[in-house]
Design a protein around this nucleic acid. Structure first.
Lengths: 303, 303
DNA sequence: CCATATATATACGTTTTAGATATACTCGTA
DNA sequence: TACGAGTATATCTAAAACGTATATATATGG
């Protein structure tokens, strides 16, 4: 017996007549009578007691009706749920972001929530290595991080380029804009978990390009810690502009660079090894709508 | 989507491979791949992520697997239950009996319970009119009563014929066996709800055949009441022998009749208007096994 | 009591679709 | 690069679901 037959049976019971049930099911009466017979043969018992016109449930018929109705409803609910998840209307969207890119998220998540109110979000913070591993392990759908991963197991789209700025204690007297060489002797605060963190590398590489290395007096794993150290007048750091906008920045002075061509290269990345879930595609669309930075061809994987 | 396809999907998930799943399902691999594709098309989303060899569940696939597995199990349980009920292994068997026939039940029900331990019983007591109505209303599956119902809406099989006996107070000095004429002046106790009760009519008719009517001093609705009145020495009554055996009968004297040809005519009766449930047929068999009174042709209705 | 209306069952032909077979493709590996 | 394991595609076959026509059964009205 299958669900089609079960539905036939339930309709017959509710219409109390095979003919009416056939109409409701948009089919002719004879095949419906037939299917009922097939079911009864398979179950080896009468489900309906036919005396002339009156159609009455037998004991097993009664039970089949009760349980079958619940089963069908359950099944239909499940199908609907799968479809909703498939359409990205429901489910859990897991996004990874490194510290400098966390600032991209709040606005976009608000937008997603408005469009897909049944969607849940999971935000994971970590450096590029951690995020890469999470993508491969399928612990996250997407990651936003500085600088594309040099590996060809990932698709990626670049977000708006954005300048890096210098953050210093507010009372320090420094030129604005400043030159990278002026940082030579300033105490420098950096953040990362591993020295291979991409944001860290971008900055270090820029220093090296100018022929020196920063005077690092503290390495933190956390931007907020760096910010509070700056607040205390301990030193300076270099960050993408927007990631400072979202912090409480009284006590922080923001200075642009004159001759520095490092830019925030925030990139949204996902795994090639995996079917990109619809809700993740929908999230990507939020970025493409605005920036128009990419051809959609790179997003839509071959199905 | 139907349950066959759901089962296919679940098997694929569990075997982690379409080829192995096809083997387990005793079918070829191509149609199984096809069905998976059909499902994905219908649900409008990928259920499995195929990268080369590794077959992994997508988000909607995961949910479908979890819920689908439960659904399938539920469905199979329901089918099993229906089959059990259909085979008479389970369910509720409702039996009606009039007072003089209640004594037939305990032994048979014990037997039924041993054979079909999951079967429940419902025993209803009432006079023949009440039982007839209950059969028509389908409140009971079968009824056991005195004398076949003269209506042709019922099937019936007669049980063992059994003599009626006289029950008197133990201290009364009466001949044994006795003649029906000797009852002419004895105080008579009778039981029934309506004067049309068949047991009552059988007895009255026998009195009339001998040219007199009993000297009825009390009409009760209950055998137990009649018995206790006899215990008190109030009068006598006539009953089928077995229905006295089962009562506590200290204080009761049982006397046979010499010239009386009334017999207990206990009959088991069921409605022609109704498909006789399997458990009811099984119950009937208990009687036919012993008595061999009937041709099975009358039991097995045309299906 | 027969005629009619209403409903279910049977017979048979048609269409749909699940499944089989053969084969091509894809990817990882030796 | 060739091979092996697994999946997808193409085409055919067979089963079964459905429709049409019609027979049968049962309640209702004249």
């Amino acid at each position: 017996m299958d669900l089609r037959q079960l539905n036939y049976f339930i309709t017959i019971v509710e219409e109390k007549q095979i003919t009416k049930a056939a109409k409701r099911l948009h089919m002719a009466q004879p095949p419906l009578s037939n299917q009922l017979k097939v079911m009864e043969t398979e179950l080896n018992c009468k489900l309906l007691d036919r005396n002339g016109r009156a159609l009455e449930l037998t004991e097993p018929g009664k039970i089949l009706y009760e349980k079958g109705k619940a089963l069908l409803a359950n099944f239909e609910d499940t199908i609907s749920e799968i479809k909703e998840i498939g359409e990205g209307l429901k489910g859990v969207l897991s996004i990874g972001a490194d510290q400098t890119c966390l600032s991209y998220l709040p606005e976009k998540i608000k937008l997603m929530h408005e469009r897909y109110p049944n969607l849940c979000f999971k935000i994971i913070e970590g450096d590029s290595f951690f995020l890469k591993k999470s993508l491969i392990n399928k612990e996250i759908d997407l990651a936003i991080l500085q600088q594309p991963i040099e590996n060809d197991n990932f698709f990626s789209i670049g977000l708006d380029l954005e300048e890096f700025v210098l953050a210093t204690p507010v009372q320090w007297k420094l030129p604005n804009p400043i030159q990278i060489e002026d940082l030579k002797d300033l105490p420098f605060l950096s953040f990362y978990r591993h020295r291979s963190c991409s944001t860290f590398r971008i900055i270090i590489d820029e220093f090296k390009r100018h022929g020196f290395e920063p005077n690092i007096i503290c390495e933190c794993i956390d931007i907020a810690m760096v910010i509070s150290l700056i607040n205390e007048g301990l030193g300076v750091t270099i960050l993408p502009k927007t990631s400072l906008d979202k912090c409480s920045n009284q006590g922080i002075q923001i200075i642009s660079f004159k001759n520095c061509n490092i830019q925030s290269n925030a990139t949204i990345v996902w795994s090639k090894d995996r079917y990109l879930a619809k809700h993740a595609m929908n999230f990507l669309e939020l970025f493409t709508e605005e920036t128009h930075l990419l051809t959609m061809g790179t997003i839509c994987q071959s199905q």
